[in-house]
Design a protein around this nucleic acid. Structure first.
Lengths: 133, 133
DNA sequence: CTCTGTGCAAAGCGTTTGCAAACGA
DNA sequence: TCGTTTGCAAACGCTTTGCACAGAG
């Protein structure tokens, strides 16, 4: 259980117990939905409000401490910001995993074909994970 | 202005005037949000209900006639189903374009790294389009 | 001490549902 | 004709807001 006090401050966020717990939950679980995060927080703070979760997640996203991951056919999950990477979604169990792959040739191909100046990519592979197959 | 009667029937959807107009709007504009679709439909059917839009979009998605495209930092857009492809999103003007690129090596890389059995991909490039740069 | 964050309750907004009348096949 | 679709209004669920009190720095 890491201490995220400094990381929060670096992102201009005061280190409240609720925020530290949110950061821990994201660190431990990797990718979580708002609902499951609320459930986890309730175990630690029996009277935490969903409004507190939403306010903090929004602030954390604005301040680039956290990122939303939009997934096909299912709810978004949230993760701590980190180096650019892609995602794998298991359509059986819903698990989300990170994967880092080289997209330079794909980016080159797409910018040539379109004359867009590409700055980032959002890539999710959908399939079946090892456990489920 | 194509006639989508048969296409709708192929997807087990009765060809009502509202549905034909939705198909035309998707065909003409490529990628549209629910709101802009509602606006367009209002011009043609002054008393069309938003509920009709939602019911039809949901049916069309279930029957694979239409697909939702989830985009980073902005609302989803909808498009007529077609061969697998990726998307370009202009972060200045919001325009969405289709682009077809070869992802076989990316898929191979990701499945090797993860031991997922990958079945599809959702890829959006974010950048600045020609007009906006 | 000051300003920000928290929890609660209420409001807001997009989406879905139930129903009677209209319509497609 | 029969089953589906439409439009309306109400319900719903998720997210945001306003406010008084508590807590971080």
């Amino acid at each position: 259980m890491n201490n995220y006090t400094d990381q929060l401050r670096l992102h201009n966020l005061k280190a409240t117990p609720q925020r530290l717990a949110i950061a821990d939950a994201l660190h431990i679980h990797g990718h979580i939905t708002i609902d499951s995060l609320y459930g986890m927080m309730l175990q630690k703070f029996s009277s935490i409000s969903l409004a507190t979760i939403y306010k903090n997640m929004n602030l954390m996203i604005e301040n680039s401490f956290v990122q939303e991951v939009k997934l096909p056919d299912t709810k978004s999950v949230y993760e701590l910001s980190k180096a650019s990477h892609s995602h794998l979604l298991c359509k059986e169990c819903g698990e989300v995993e990170d994967v880092t792959i080289d997209l330079t040739s794909a980016i080159k191909e797409a910018s040539t074909a379109s004359s867009f100046k590409i700055e980032s990519t959002a890539l999710t592979f959908v399939g079946v994970c090892k456990k489920c197959s």
